[in-house]
Simulated assay, not measured.
Amino acid sequence: MTDYDVAPPPDRLADRVQLRTRFSTDSGTVSRFMIQLEYWLDGAWREVVRYDHDRDAAGGHDITTEGLHLDVYRDGDKHRLEQITGPIPANEGFTAAEADLHENAERYIRRFESWHGINNGANL
């Protein structure tokens, strides 16, 4: 896993839901980030959806040339990638990703719960 300069504790959104944010900056510009919605399932935090930007990592993504995308997880694996924007500055992508996960957390969680057969799940 990439080491980030800033890694605050996860932001708990509900009993079984949290938002994990990690990022690094270079002269005030976001150089890499990972923002991930997670669900507590079977004794571990599982990825629900993730935004990321790290042009220097093996297999990393550079949103300034590739555009912002959302990784969607199902059964512990990346299920699909949803393209969100065209090329975008990293600071704007970071802000957009964070806003999307706050605004659409309930929708993402409901889909995750449906896929995993979870009834009476997280209360968002």
Rank of each mutant, 00 (worst) to 15 (best):
T2I: 01
T2M: 00
D3C: 00
D3G: 11
D3T: 01
D3Y: 01
Y4P: 03
Y4M: 01
Y4H: 04
D5Q: 15
D5H: 11
A7I: 02
A7D: 03
A7Y: 06
P8F: 02
P9N: 10
P9V: 14
D11V: 08
R12L: 00
L13Q: 03
L13W: 02
A14M: 05
A14F: 02
D15M: 04
D15W: 02
R16V: 00
V17F: 05
Q18D: 04
Q18P: 03
Q18W: 02
R20G: 07
R20K: 14
R20A: 15
F23M: 09
F23K: 09
S24R: 10
T25S: 13
S27A: 15
G28V: 12
T29L: 15
V30K: 06
R32Y: 00
R32T: 00
R32H: 09
R32C: 08
F33G: 07
I35R: 07
Q36K: 10
Q36H: 06
L37A: 07
L37N: 11
L37C: 06
L37E: 05
Y39V: 12
L41G: 03
L41C: 07
D42M: 04
D42K: 09
D42F: 01
D42W: 02
G43V: 11
A44I: 00
A44G: 06
R46Y: 04
R46P: 00
V49S: 07
R50D: 11
Y51D: 10
Y51I: 02
H53T: 06
H53S: 13
D54A: 15
D54L: 09
A57Y: 05
A57F: 08
A58Q: 15
G60T: 08
H61E: 12
D62G: 10
D62C: 09
I63D: 01
I63Q: 07
I63Y: 04
T64N: 07
T64H: 04
H69G: 10
L70Q: 04
L70T: 10
V72I: 15
Y73E: 06
Y73Q: 11
Y73H: 09
R74I: 02
R74P: 09
R74N: 12
D75W: 03
G76H: 03
D77K: 14
D77A: 15
K78Q: 15
H79N: 14
R80Q: 14
L81I: 13
E82H: 12
I84R: 09
I88Y: 00
I88K: 07
I88Q: 11
N91L: 08
N91A: 12
E92S: 09
E92N: 13
T95H: 08
T95F: 03
A96D: 03
A96F: 02
A96M: 08
E98K: 15
E98A: 14
A99M: 12
H102V: 12
H102C: 11
E103C: 07
N104A: 05
N104L: 03
A105M: 00
R107D: 11
R107W: 01
Y108G: 05
Y108A: 01
I109L: 12
I109S: 11
I109D: 07
F112V: 04
E113G: 11
S114A: 12
W115H: 09
W115E: 14
W115K: 05
G117L: 05
G117M: 01
I118A: 01
N119K: 10
N120R: 14
G121C: 12
N123C: 08
L124F: 08
